[in-house]
């Protein structure tokens, strides 16, 4: 396996509610290798965005890290002060958010927004930063890049704005690019353009990427490895081919089965997962998926399963399920 760039251990995040703190991320372990693309998949509220935001102290009010560590370049990100973090945010770790309309400054020309991290992190002169900003726009495939430097965000289309966001994320040649549902607000033909762009850049620049999404089909062609999150825990972590060929967790299997497939023969009904995910603060004892799980046994309702290698082998395929091993052997 390649060298590890980021290693998150036992990360726990709490949200303050009137009834006291509720756990929204419950002991997440994950790692990203150098040059690797990790897909983080899960439904709304599973904690996929909070996990990544917490690394750079970008959590909203009332939500805080309650425990864990996040080693990046030999230092624990969660212990850094604001000044130390500023050197990493936008410098060694770039971030691309879902909605480019609200993450870009509407009253600042995009050239200036692109130049900002370059002046701050790379101590470039204004003129040099502007030139580099033009190159970055060209890199992300914006036609007439130099002329666009003086445009305001509202003068660009959604796809163009997302390209600008990516260019800002890439400005300082980060070691890691975190992309939080960067194509969810975009149309499918524009999504294809952006995915193509990130694939190409990743290869050219050799950076690691964490791509957060709810879309398993989208991540299939993009990630090297996938972490599936459910109710604030990692339920399965596997190389992409293994995850799709041999999904082990009942939740992953349910998710994959509920995607209508273009090539599949027509069947009248989709298989679906009954019920809804638990709310934070009302997490069941034991496995969080047990109340919706078709295979749940007594042990699932009392004991939280640990994330362990499948079939007890030395394999990168890890799953947090009491019954997965037995079910996989029977299959």
């Amino acid at each position: 396996m390649s060298e590890t760039l980021l290693e998150v251990k036992d990360l726990t995040i709490e949200i303050a509610t009137r009834r006291g703190p509720a756990t929204v991320v419950d002991g997440i372990d994950l790692h990203v290798g150098k040059g690797e693309t990790l897909g983080i998949v899960g439904e709304s509220g599973c904690g996929k965005s909070l996990t990544m935001l917490s690394l750079l102290k970008l959590l909203p009010n009332k939500i805080r890290v309650a425990g864990g560590s996040a080693m990046f370049g030999g230092r624990d990100l969660l212990t850094l002060n604001n000044k130390e973090l500023r050197a990493i945010r936008g410098g060694r770790i770039g971030f691309v958010f879902q909605d480019p309309m609200t993450s870009l400054n509407p009253v600042m020309r995009i050239g200036d927004q692109l130049a900002e991290p370059l002046i701050h992190h790379r101590a470039m002169s204004k003129a040099a930063a502007r030139q580099r900003a033009g190159e970055l726009l060209k890199l992300v495939g914006i036609p007439g890049a130099e002329q666009r430097l003086d445009a305001y965000p509202h003068e660009l289309s959604g796809g163009m704005r997302q390209r600008v966001m990516i260019a800002i994320g890439l400005a300082c040649d980060p070691d890691l690019l975190i992309a939080d549902e960067p194509t969810t607000a975009l149309d499918v033909t524009i999504q294809a353009q952006i995915v193509d762009l990130v694939k190409g850049l990743r290869q050219r620049l050799g950076m690691s990427v964490v791509w957060i999404t709810h879309d398993l089909a989208l991540i299939a062609g993009l990630a090297d490895r996938i972490c599936v999150l459910y109710a604030g825990t990692v339920v399965e972590d596997a190389p992409v081919d293994q995850l799709f060929a041999e999904p082990a967790h009942p939740y992953t299997r349910g998710l994959l089965a509920s995607i209508p497939r273009m090539g599949a023969p027509d069947s009248a009904r989709l298989s679906s997962i009954g019920g809804t995910p638990p709310e934070p603060g009302r997490r069941p004892a034991g496995c969080p998926f047990a109340p919706r799980c078709p295979l749940a046994e007594d042990v699932c309702r009392t004991t939280v399963p640990a994330l362990a290698p499948l079939r007890g082998e030395a394999t990168p395929h890890r799953v947090a399920c009491h019954v997965a091993n037995r079910v996989m052997e029977a299959a």
Binding site: T189, V195, G221, G263
Partner: peptide
């Protein structure tokens, strides 16, 4: 044709080799 070609499929091996027709520009 372009629209169909842009739809991602839940098939990692197929996605890696798939030839996509990517439309240029915006609507």
């Amino acid at each position: 044709k372009a629209l169909m070609s842009a739809v991602p499929e839940a098939d990692p091996a197929g996605e890696r080799t798939r030839q996509r027709q990517i439309l240029e520009g915006d609507v």
